[in-house]
């Protein structure tokens, strides 16, 4: 049974905690990057655990927990269970926490070999053979995609939590946002390869607006047809290897699960 959101009823401020697993910190920094809105967030939520902002830490339970990063070690796997049990509403943020991140490239390789090659004392290293999203370990109430996440979407998730409503975070492709923005399609008009048609919206279609193809930072959308897109990428100059590499970035593990993904 998943916990329900706690609508703000004007009583004590709900508590917020921000946690980090294997990740670069970029997504939690998005919260600090909220500038004008940050004070309003701090006014509505009691920030109880956010090491990036303050070393003062208060114990749980927390009403809202934001978790960045993927699970790559046995210790992380244990910690994520602790976080879950301390969190009423658990939101994972970013490609690492929702898809395993770029570090999920290990899922396609021999981790033993990496360990032996990279570390002088491989026996010091306790690591899992895979990098997995938080949802592979514990139930998650909402997943916010992106590498990094979009500031506006993060505020929407927090605001929706406070109002006790569903966040307005569409599951359609980047093309929807691209057309709404009035961008000239880089694939149709320039022959530039673009992952927009298979990528989850959320960034506001930034790359095509600057004449570049979408890199797939937000992972696969809810409705993906890779076998229809790959021939276009090939036509527009990508080799089979280029296609594989394009799909194996921040969301490597989730694109790999899509039907028709190159092996």
């Amino acid at each position: 049974m998943r916990p329900q959101p706690v609508p703000y009823d004007g009583g004590a401020r709900p508590t917020l905690a921000v946690f980090k697993l294997a990740s670069c910190d970029g997504c939690q920094l998005t919260l600090l990057d909220c500038e004008d809105q940050l004070l309003a967030v701090a006014g509505r939520l009691d920030i109880s655990h956010f090491l990036e902002a303050s070393s003062a830490v208060r114990p749980g339970p927390y009403d809202l927990a934001l978790v960045e990063g993927s699970v790559t070690t046995p210790a992380d796997a244990e910690r994520v269970r602790e976080i879950r049990s301390a969190a009423r509403f658990l939101v994972t943020i970013g490609a690492c926490a929702t898809a395993g991140g770029i570090q999920a490239l290990r899922n396609f390789a021999d981790v033993e070999e990496f360990r032996a090659t990279v570390y002088a004392r491989p026996d010091y290293i306790a690591t899992l053979t895979t990098s997995t999203p938080v949802s592979a370990h514990v139930p998650v109430d909402f997943e916010l995609r992106g590498c990094p996440i979009d500031r506006g979407q993060l505020l929407e998730v927090i605001t929706a939590f406070l109002a006790g409503r569903k966040p307005d975070v569409p599951n359609h492709s980047v093309c929807f946002a691209c057309k709404r923005r009035g961008t000239v399609c880089v694939t149709v008009a320039h022959g530039t390869p673009c992952l927009g048609p298979v990528t989850h919206a959320g960034c506001g279609a930034i790359c095509p607006a600057y004449g570049r193809g979408c890199y797939g930072c937000f992972g696969p959308s809810a409705s993906v047809n890779l076998p229809a897109l790959i021939p276009l990428l090939r036509r527009d100059g990508m080799s089979d290897d280029d296609v594989r590499r394009a799909l194996r970035t921040y969301n490597a593990a989730s694109f790999a699960e899509v039907e028709g993904a190159p092996s």
Binding site: L155, I158, T159, D168, N171, F176, R180, S223
Partner: peptide, 22 residues
């Protein structure tokens, strides 16, 4: 759209498409 105070809300209309699952 609601704001962080919870005292202001707005309703916006935006293009949708029959190709969107939602």
């Amino acid at each position: 759209v609601t704001d962080l105070t919870g005292d202001h809300a707005e309703r916006w209309q935006r293009w949708d498409s029959c190709f969107d699952l939602d």
